[in-house]
Simulated assay, not measured.
Amino acid sequence: MPTRSREVHKLDRTDRRILEALQSDGALNNQQLAEAVGLSPSPCLRRVRALEEAGIILDRVTVLDHKKLGLSLTAIILIGMDRHTPERFEAFEQQVADYPEVQECYLITGQDADYMLKVVVPDMDHYHEFLLNQITRIPGVSGVHSSFVLRRVIDSTALPLKYLEAEG
């Protein structure tokens, strides 16, 4: 995964309104977005392009209902590695990036694990197969602890923009 710039960009109120509107509905076209934030279409499009070029807007995606698609089981997997070397971590990360079941992967601290994965599969049989035939076969995996989601209480991709300092 490429390293992104850690530079913090200052945003004005209009940029924040654009980001809030897009987080709420990423399918807004430029005309709808411009109306929602109180701009004319041309300046709105310029601002969105500037936010994309600055790497603030990374992508626009469609969120699917996993249960309606038969993906009823969500697991959180904590994974321990046998060696803490850049090569071992890079190999692990490259391997899990190829698994469509893995929705999120975090290198973590503060647990008896090195990685936390969020995995979505149809059922426990598929999870068992995924765990035994893919995860535990990755070189360096020395321990696995699984937890299963009973209910999604909060499931959001929106960032809390209220913490951003607004310019202007």
Rank of each mutant, 00 (worst) to 15 (best):
A97P: 05
A75G: 02
S5G: 12
E101F: 04
L58N: 05
R151T: 11
G168T: 14
R46W: 10
E53N: 11
V48T: 11
H84L: 03
A54K: 10
K68V: 03
K162N: 11
H145D: 10
V8T: 15
Q134H: 13
L58Y: 05
R16T: 11
V8A: 15
E35G: 04
S72H: 12
S72M: 06
N133W: 03
Q32P: 01
R6N: 14
A97K: 14
D65L: 00
Q103A: 09
T136H: 05
P43T: 06
S156D: 14
I56D: 07
V102H: 05
E7V: 15
L39Q: 12
R47L: 10
V141Q: 05
G38C: 08
D98E: 15
H84D: 14
H66K: 10
A158Y: 00
I18L: 09
H66I: 03
R152F: 03
G80Q: 11
L71S: 00
P122W: 00
Y163R: 13
C44Y: 05
A113Q: 02
T157G: 15
Y115M: 06
H84W: 04
M116Y: 02
Q32M: 06
V149S: 05
K67N: 02
Q31A: 06
I138R: 05
E167N: 09
R60I: 09
F148N: 05
G55T: 09
G168E: 15
C105G: 03
L33H: 03
A27D: 05
H84N: 09
I18M: 05
V102P: 04
R49M: 08
L45C: 08
A27S: 12
S72P: 00
L132H: 10
E129C: 01
L132F: 09
D59I: 03
L161G: 05
E87H: 07
V119M: 01
A113N: 04
E167W: 09
R137C: 05
L131F: 07
D59N: 13
K162T: 09
P139I: 03
V63W: 03
V37M: 08
E104A: 14
K10R: 13
M81K: 02
L164T: 09
D98R: 15
G70V: 01
L11G: 08
E93Q: 07
L131V: 06
L64M: 08
L22Q: 02
L45M: 14
D125F: 02
I108S: 01
D112R: 08
L22A: 02
A21F: 01
R16N: 06
Q134S: 09
I77S: 07
V121A: 00
E104I: 15
R13V: 12
L58R: 12
V119N: 01
A54P: 07
D114Y: 00
H66L: 12
R60W: 03
N29H: 07
R137H: 06
P43H: 10
T62P: 01
P41M: 08
E52A: 11
H9A: 12
S156Q: 13
E7T: 15
V153W: 08
F148I: 11
K10E: 15
G70C: 00
R137N: 11
H126F: 03
D25F: 00
